[in-house]
Design a protein around this nucleic acid. Structure first.
Lengths: 340, 340
DNA sequence: AACTTTTGTTTAATCGATTAACCATTATTA
DNA sequence: TAATAATGGTTAATCGATTAAACAAAAGTT
């Protein structure tokens, strides 16, 4: 039930020491060190410490017009990909003396707009955004604002702004090429029905790999799952494919979530991977450990993605320019795609 | 390569409309509505909109001494328990017009102290903290500061401060009572070796349930895993117990992580759950779906935890007082603990 | 001795919004 | 009609830190 204690300000220290606030400010910020007597500096520092002084960042920000804060908006914080990404971004930002404040748009357009506004109101120095679906107009509006930003993981190809993303096309093509090299010709694709560019690039990579190998595209082997309630869709998609007269020998899942749900179903049905069907997917999670076969998958360079996005943003803040980065995925080959 | 545009301020609007900044402020904050002519108010609002004005929260905060921001420090954002918790806290805070800025201490003492400092420097109105191990001194110091805070999930019983946590003792006791009711008498415990009060309460609940049933405690059935690198420890603990001449008929895992790793091992060894060994654990994750038997577990009321913590904090901010809340866990009974 | 530098510090404006107190007008009332 | 109240607004101080510019005193230079 203690009364609210007032925080110590520069003024308090100045009074205590018997100098002006200006001097205190100079000392505590290590400015004009040549012009300040050692003893006074020492005294100021020690009283600041004694009085437990901490800079009021709000006041500093108002004057300097900098907050040393980056805003991070991820699409879904409950997705391990994003929580890892957030962590790397935080670390990289901290190394450059920035704090990250972050929030999740939960793949929701309205929430995304709110968050952008909240962050702008708080005068963040810059934004890192993994944009939710259909938020292109929001990003376009952001371009007209004063605040630097970088997209990450997802982007809009016709929007000229900075971003860091996986080269999804080449990653997916690599994955499917691998399946082809392993002797599979009937290769199914399970992906989301979406306007997301990055997801559709995965499909394009799949198609490209088939075409270059001269394998005809079979529409029955391509299934697009509704994002709203994917679980039953995935089950049905896999079931349908397995029931085809010419069933695929291999499946490419375009996201980890699709893969997990697909595997759960395959296991329920007692279908042996890779003997009856070979599998390649995206990303790793601790869940994969629970299936008996170690998965072949595309590993995204999450750390690098976070680091680059942060670095580019900070560069942007200090000196305006845009930069687009495509990072390569790495195909990690494991049992799930290799038949002996 | 556009030049940084200056943001629109109250002054700009005032000049445009030809009134004082005070008036603009009153209008935009809906204050003194009775004393302001409708037309002027309308004009101010429309020009504000036209000029795309957004309040500079930094300036407002400096004057009002409020940031409308809560700081949330979780122990490990990659843990789904915490990412869910974060989400509920965010929602609840948003409903009360607070923004949450959050960060993860990664169970690291030093990082925790840094984050507390960073948040205090930014003048958050209050803090919600899931404290890392050995951070009691930090929390004690926080008590002496001006900033209200609430602990969540974890707390220090000898520290008189607000917190919201599960009643871990009773939850664990309930779980073990259930195993006893199901006819098990040889019940093993796999837990962490830690100074965390909440984890040790789970052990106490286990002991209490055995005692009240008159079952003697067997130290060989209690294993404490090193938190630093748990996976091999868990494996060994389970293996050792299974190798005992009188092996337990049931196992109580005190955290979800222990449960997952334990199950992986049991599956590898081809041990049937619950026929050969009954299992009860803590928390649910999507991973549980991947084991064939639906788990019996203690469900924590995460939403309520987040909501209450937020509500109590905001109350704290507005009118100082402390409050301790213990929430009950709910035992969800499933196949993993029921032998037919 | 008169002038210039250097040294150590202070003054005061500023960032943008808030808000108590004040000031004109224009009704209203006695 | 004079005093009072209501109406619609403005003035100016303030939050706490930053920083260019000014200033006084001491030290150096010619």
């Amino acid at each position: 039930m203690s009364l609210r204690k007032k925080k110590v300000s520069l003024k308090d220290i100045a009074q205590q020491v018997g100098v002006s606030t200006a001097l205190v400010s100079y000392v505590l910020n290590n400015k004009r060190e040549d012009r300040i007597s050692k003893e006074v500096a020492k005294k100021i520092r020690s009283t600041a410490k004694k009085m437990n002084y901490r800079t009021n960042q709000i006041a500093r920000s108002l004057k300097t017009n900098k907050t040393a804060t980056l805003g991070l908006i991820v699409a879904d914080i409950s997705n391990p990909f994003f929580s890892q990404l957030a962590r790397f971004i935080e670390d990289q930002a901290a190394a450059a003396n920035y704090t990250v404040i972050f929030a999740s748009s939960d793949e929701n357009e309205q929430k995304s707009q709110n968050l952008i506004n909240v962050f702008l109101d708080r005068q963040v120095d810059g934004l890192i955004i993994a944009p939710a679906e259909n938020t292109k107009p929001q990003i376009r509006a952001l371009q007209r604002s004063a605040t630097p930003f970088v997209l990450v993981d997802r982007y809009f190809p016709d929007l000229k702004c900075s971003y860091v993303a996986l080269d999804n096309f080449q990653a997916a093509r690599e994955a499917v090429r691998h399946l082809i090299r392993e002797g599979n010709r009937r290769i199914g694709l399970i992906t989301f029905k979406t306007s997301f560019f990055h997801i559709n690039e995965r499909r394009n990579g799949y198609l490209s790999a088939l075409r270059e190998a001269g394998i005809p595209i079979n529409k029955k082997w391509i299934r697009e799952i509704n994002m709203a309630d994917p679980a039953p869709g995935i089950k049905k998609a896999v079931a349908d494919m397995l029931a085809l007269p010419t069933r695929p020998e291999a499946l490419f899942f375009s996201t980890n979530m699709l893969y997990i749900q697909g595997m759960i179903y395959l296991r329920q049905q007692g279908i042996k991977v890779p003997d009856e069907i070979a599998i390649v997917s995206f990303d790793e999670t601790e869940a994969s450990e629970l299936f008996d076969v170690p998965p072949t998958y595309i590993r995204q360079p999450i750390r690098e993605m976070g680091q680059q996005a942060t670095r580019i943003l900070i560069e942007n803040i200090e000196r305006r320019h845009t930069r687009q980065v495509h990072l390569p995925g790495e195909l990690i080959i494991n049992t799930s795609s290799i038949r002996r």
